[in-house]
Design a protein around this nucleic acid. Structure first.
Lengths: 337, 337
DNA sequence: TGAATCCGCGAAAACGATTAAGTGAAATTA
DNA sequence: TAATTTCACTTAATCGTTTTCGCGGATTCA
């Protein structure tokens, strides 16, 4: 039951624990035959390294912290973030790291994110889907722990972002190409992502020579069908109705579609609509959703790779912004006009 | 930068490290004033316990392992499991535990689940959404590490399950109540959950005096709209078409709906359909989905509570099956006939 | 042949915490 | 008053690894 340790192996092989450690870690100052003998008896005896002892001694845990939304409206429940997390996990494991969730207040112990990460000896932390103005987050950002952020930029940190600027350009060019000139845009809460998308939308329209009246820009809450339904209603009430509405994500998109349904408007015959995210369901629904697929898998993978690179080559570190581009997913919700 | 340790506090307070440890852990054999003084200087100095050192010495890590599907078809990406995971996380953290993902093969190091859990000193492990016949899983099940399983029963382990038997009863009674007598059932891959649901479906129908011809029972792949679309097509090809089709989950449900759309059948006027899971989107879509909402939040929470209880009170442990019941979510896809 | 180099390995001190066993003084008891 | 108990704290071992330093013997070099 109790674990076999290096000392046990040392006894069995008639060498010192130091030699066992070196043999198992592939140090060069151990004879090849001795090393091989140690390794094979280790295998026979079912030896497992003890992560705690190793972390204690080396001050490296091979463990990454992840910070995903703490709020009750769990970021995890949303497909975009759970996909990011999953690919982050896969890549991290491939590179030899485990991952642990970082939260505030573990049990009765009040602590902030930084303290939690320290407590667990995290070699690095990835941050996503969170309130980036939280002082507790900022403390972590300003700390000496390697950090990469997702979809948000700090000037001293590496960030992985979907290329929101390019995606809005692609979207506008696509609907423009289908003849739309009256394009409305519903955006999410005010975050840097939201601002980037909105600015890019405006610019792309301008480049196409399209005028965007202020009342074509509406605000909603990300992932909230009700809120986007409301925004949609406002847009439909305008005297100069848009011919195409862009939504900030696919949940909002579907919320908008229900409102259209309620008003007996057919998609895409009466009005064109388009989403963002490319959730799994988008292609299973009828009509198939036209949306912009974010490469969430790529984002998670790049985040892990960058973070681990920073951990393992600290002197080469320079804060970087990695843009990950997505692609248009053409369904049946946008029509030629 | 480098961490403040108990020794530092001991020096500053003019006591021994042992006294600091006891004071911080609330042992009774330290004077109240001394203890308070130690605690306050610890706070001032920004002391943080070192999880690795503590784990090494106590052989307890306050860390739980989670085993979620390893396959590329990430369990995490599915709303049901990510919700379970999230509530598991929240409850575990409330009780003072962190969580770490357990996988096979971390880096170049080949190991199985049991070894990984050992390596990380997990106090317990929760298993969900996984191939329960995997020998590596079985090794963990047969080990001395506390384990709870989700949606699968082993006789030596505590299991948390949605009450699939009752839910099928509720579903059958609901559609029966609306006049349906020709009810088809599409089920997922062969697992214990699937078998339970199917058996319960048959029994519930029998209790209502409904005959279920064998070709009303079709097989599909969970969460795969294509596969359920196919099964749907087969059902529609029958001479005695069912008036109501039950799907194994909401993704399959939507796959079925697209097939119906393709065949120009209106839901619910031409045919009634019903799903399972109660995904977030179900109420945002039009028609609103009639489905059975699993209490995934409750499942995760109970799993954490049970697991931690087993860890902290090992002698009271007895394998238990906790049934968590869900509830009917009535939308517009089932019609009175 | 004597000196320098290299190779393979061991001794021992950490890393930061916990805890059994003990210690001296004060308080209680007989 | 002498014996016992209680109180508040310390000593020191220990958890399983890693790593610096050094050591003896063999090999190479001059």
């Amino acid at each position: 039951m109790s674990m076999v340790t290096m000392k046990d192996i040392a006894v069995k092989c008639g060498v010192s624990p130091a030699t066992v450690s070196k043999a198992l870690n592939g140090h060069s100052d151990i004879g090849t035959d001795t090393a091989e003998h140690i390794r094979s008896t280790a295998r026979e005896m079912g030896y497992l390294p003890n992560a705690a002892a190793r972390a204690l001694k080396t001050n490296r845990s091979l463990n990454l912290g992840v910070l995903f939304a703490d709020k009750t409206s769990s970021g995890l429940a949303h497909e975009y973030f759970s996909t990011v997390l999953n690919s982050f996990k896969v890549e991290a494991e491939r590179l030899g790291y485990d991952i642990t969730f970082i939260s505030k207040d573990i049990g009765n112990f009040k602590m902030d994110y930084y303290e939690h990460a320290r407590y667990r000896n995290c070699d690095g932390v990835v941050i996503a889907s969170i309130d980036y103005s939280d002082p507790s987050v900022l403390r972590l950002i300003d700390s000496d722990i390697p950090v990469v952020t997702i979809d948000h930029v700090f000037n001293n940190r590496t960030a992985i972002l979907s290329d929101n600027v390019q995606s809005m350009v692609d979207i506008v060019e696509y609907v423009y190409g289908l003849g739309h000139r009256k394009i409305a845009f519903i955006h999410g809460e005010d975050t840097s992502v939201t601002r980037n998308r909105l600015a890019s939308f405006r610019k792309a329209c301008m480049n196409k020579g399209i005028d965007v009246p202020e009342d074509y820009i509406k605000s909603a809450v990300y992932h909230d069908p009700k809120s986007s339904g409301l925004a949609t209603r406002e847009l439909l009430a305008l005297q100069a109705r848009p011919t195409c509405i862009l939504y900030p994500d696919d949940f909002s998109f579907l919320g908008g579609m229900s409102e259209l349904e309620r008003q007996r408007l057919k998609v895409p015959d009466d009005i064109s609509v388009m989403g963002y995210d490319g959730i799994l369901l988008s292609q299973a629904l009828r009509p198939r959703l036209t949306t912009f697929r974010q490469d969430s898998e790529g984002i998670g993978r790049r985040a892990a790779a960058k973070l681990i690179d920073e951990i393992e080559n600290p002197k080469m570190f320079v804060p970087t912004q990695v843009l990950v581009s997505g692609s248009l997913l053409v369904g049946n919700t946008v029509k030629q006009v």
